[in-house]
Design a binder for these strands. Sequence first.
DNA 1: AGCACGCCGACT
DNA 2: GTCGGCGTGCTC
Length: 787
Amino acid sequence: MIAEVIINITAKRLQKTFSYIVPEELFVRVGTRVLVPFGHRREEGVIVALHPADSVQHDYVLKPISSVLSVQTGFQEEMIATALWISDYYLCSMSDSLRLFMIEKKGIVAHTYVTVENRDMLLQLNGKNIWEYLENKKNEEKKILCNQFGQAFIEKLIEKHALKEEKQLQNKIADKTEKWLYFVDDDCQSILKNRKKQMHLLAELKENGPAPLSFWIQKGYSRDIIQHLVQTKLAAIDIRLKQTVDLTEKEAADKPWQLTPEQEHAVTVIKNDTKGSTYVLHGVTGSGKTEIYMDLAEQVIARGRQVIVLVPEIALTGQIVRRFIRRFGNDIVVMHSQLSKGERQNNWLRMQKEESHICIGARSAVFTAVSNLGLVIVDEAHDSSYKQDETPRYHAVAVARKRASYYRCPVILGSATPSLDSYYRAQKGEYVLLELSRRVQNKPLPDVRVVDMREELARGNRSVISDALATLLDQTLACRQQAIILLNRRGFSTFVMCRKCGYVVKCKTCDVAMVYHKSQHNLRCHYCDTEIPVPVVCPSCGSKYIKFFGTGTEKVEEQLHDRYPQARIIRLDQDTTGRKNSGDKIIEAFRRHEYDILLGTQMVAKGHDFPEVSAVGILSADSLLNLPVYWAGERTFQLLTQAAGRSGRGNVPGHVVMQTYAPEHYVIQCSKYQDYKSFYEKEISYRQELLYPPFHQIVKITVTYEDESFMWKAGNRIFDLLAAWRLRYDQNIEIIGPYVDTIKKIRNKFRIIVLIKGADLVKIKKYIKEEAEFHKTGIIIDVDPSI
DNA sequence: AGCACGCCGACT
DNA sequence: GTCGGCGTGCTC
C-alpha cells in the first residue's frame, strides 16, 4: 500500500502531500498519525489517503513509514475530508487545517541526549566531573547538562568528540491518568477485625463503586489507610484515564415546563429531518431556545448519536452550559479555554470513544472528534466570535455545516438576530426558517426609548447620561431592580490632545491614538497593549495644555458613582476581566444581585439571562454604525437588539434608553421595535444594490511588513497577478486595491489590503491556492472576512 | 519549517 | 585560500 501523508509542520510553502510505502506489519488507515522520514530528519504526518502500490507511478524512490505514532488520537475519515475542504475553501495549508482537529499540535517532541564518546579525551579536557556525572546515568538530556556545566563547555567537548549527542524523538501524545481504588472482595472479617477505618472504606467502596484516590482522600481516608487496605488485596488500585466531569448524577430537577406550541413545532420539524438541513431558529430574546436545544439533544442521544453545541466564548461558563450539565451529567464534555492540555485530550478521547455524547464549547469545539454526529447546535449563531481571526480564518458555522453534511444530520443556527447571510439563505430555501415570535409565558418585549443626544446638548445637558436615562436609572434603583449600561469603548478618555498645537498622543508602534486609563493612570494602546506614563507637557510643543477627550467605560463608572453613591456598580470589559476569563465571576455576582448596575462594553449584551434587570442604557448607539465597513448596520442592529433584550426577562417589564445622534436611522428605528424583518428588508436591498455579501463573496488579502516600500512592492505584485488572472479568465470579478488599511500600522508593521469581490470566486481561489506568491510570510488571506 | 547548496565579499 | 552571509530549492 501507498499512503499519502500531510507533514505536520507549519510551512506556508509546503502545500502538498508526500507518498510513503506502508510496511506490511503496520496497521494504518486514513487519519492515522505516523512518523515518516522527511529529508534528513523525521517528522510527524497524517495519512489522508491510501491506495494500492501499483496504482500510481512515481519518478522518485518511495521511503517507508517509520512507525505509527498513535492510533488512539488519529482522525475519522470525515475529519480528514473536512480538513481538506477547509484548506481549499479558506486557502490555508493542509497542515494548518489538520491541526485544528488536534489537541497536541505536534505528536512528537525531540530531545537531545548526551553520552560519553571518548573517556580519555573527556578527562584530558578537564571533564572529570562530567565523567562522574554520566558514569552511572549513562546519558543525560543536553539541556540539563548545559545548565549544569555551561553550554559553551559542553559544545566544545562534543566538537572534540569527547562527548556524543544523539537526537531522540518522543511520542508526545500521552494520555492523562489517575489512580482509582476499586473493590475486589469482602470475605474479610478476620483480616480487618481491628481495623475500623479500613472496614468502613471497604464497605463504602463496595456500595458506591470505584472512584479516584483523590475522592477517597477528600472523604477523610488517609493515603496510609488506602495503602493498608490495598495490601490486604481486598481492594486494588488501577490507572484510568482522568475524568474531567465529576461523577455527580444528573439532576432531573431542570425538567422543562410544557413547550409552547411554537417550540413544539420547531422540535417536531427538526426531529423529522432526514436530509441534514440547516435550520435558522429565529427567536426573539427570551423565547426559550435552550429548551428546544435540550429536547432535541436528548432525542439524538437516545438514538446513540452525538451532539456538538457551540456557544460564544463569553457564554461558556454561563447559564446555558450549566443547564446542559444539569440535564445530561456525565454524558457531556465541556471544552473551555482554561482546561489543561491533558484535560482537553481526555475530553477529546471521551467523545471519540463515544463515552460522552455531547460536547459543548466555543468556536474550536466544532472540531470535536465525533464518530457518529447527529446534531450541531450553534447558539447565538450571529456572534462574531465564530469567525477565527487568525489563520486558518474559518467560520465555525461553515465548518459545522460541512461536518453535518457528511453525517446527513441537521444544524441549528439559533439567534434573536440571525446573520443577514443565514436569513437570506433561508429566504432562498437553502436553509429552513423556524420562527419563535413570542417570549415564554408571553412576557412583553421591552419598551425602548430613543434619545437624540443633539437635543440633549441643546438643552444644556453635557453629560454622557441623558435625562431620560437618568430618570430610568432613578426609578430602577428605587425599585431595587438592576440596570445594564452599554458603552462600546473601554478606558477613561479615548484620546489625549494638546490644546495648543493639536498634537494627539499616538502609540510608538501602531498608528492609533492612545487611550487614557485612570485606574492605572497611564496611556494604553488597544492594539499592542503598550503602556506609557501620562505626559505632563505636550511631547511636541512643550505646552502644559494637555487635555483628555472622549468617554470610555471608566469615566462613565466614575460619573455613575458620583450620581448614585449608594448604588453598587461593577464594570465588565477587557480591563476588569483580565486575561483569565474572570468575566463570568462578574456576571454571576451581578446575577445574584450583588451589584445594582452592570456597566461595560459589548460583553454585557451577549446572551446572558438576568431576571432582575429591568433597565438597559445604550450610551452611544451609533458608535459602530459609522465605521466604514459594509456590515456596520448589521453589527449595530445585532448589538442594540441583543442589549435591549437583556431587560425584562423576569417579572418586571423592561425599559431601554438608546442614546444616539441619528435617531431616524433605520438601524436605530428597527432595533427600537425589535423589528428584525424590516431591518432585514432594508439591509438586504442595500447589500444587493452595492453587491456586498451575501450577493458577492469577498476574499481579503492583507500585506504586512515592517519595510513600507517592500510592502508596497509585494502588494502591487499581488494585485498585478490577480488583475492579470482576471483579465484572462473572468472579468466579472473585481480586484480592488492595494489600499492602506484603516489602521496603517500595527506593532511596527505597515498594512495594506487587496480585495477580491465577485459572485463566484471558486476559480480564482483555486489559482491563489496554487500560486506560491500568495503563501509567503507577511501575506494574510481571509475568505469571507468579517472585518 | 529546516537544512544543504552555492554564490559572493571580507578576512587570517 | 577560507569563513560566513543569505538567496534558492528540496523534502516522498
